[in-house]
């Protein structure tokens, strides 16, 4: 069965799998995208202080965060930026296209 897979609807739906800062929330309930998890929630160790608890050297802690982030951001953030299970499910139900990551 020939399907116009590159229809505008699919293109827009697939486009929502781009990094979260380019996405627009849809009208229906439920999140349009899953924002990237902060490192503290992803289980990776972090020395970032909680809000309201500023260290004596805020700049140093920021640098510490950056140096840690360089080692930990790669794998999980890569996957988080492009994985959107809810949107993928929507695409599948809309046009019958399966998407495997």
């Amino acid at each position: 069965m020939q399907m116009n897979i590159n229809s505008i609807g699919l293109t827009q739906a697939v486009a929502s799998n781009r990094p979260p800062q380019t996405l627009v929330a849809p009208a229906q309930s439920g999140p349009a995208f899953i924002p990237p998890l902060p490192l503290s929630q992803s289980g990776m160790p972090t020395r970032v202080h909680a809000s309201g608890d500023r260290p004596s050297s805020f700049h140093d802690s920021h640098l510490t965060y950056d140096s840690l982030a360089q080692g930990t951001e790669g794998a999980i953030n890569q996957y988080m930026l492009t994985q959107n299970f809810a949107k993928r499910d929507e695409i599948q139900s809309m046009v019958g296209i399966d998407i495997y990551a």
Binding site: I5, N17, Y79, L81, I99, A101
Partner: peptide
């Protein structure tokens, strides 16, 4: 249908059936 590759090493495969 097609595959998509991204600079960060992620990718998609769009298919039907199987």
């Amino acid at each position: 249908s097609h595959i998509q590759l991204f600079p960060n090493g992620a990718g998609f495969c769009f298919s039907q059936g199987g």
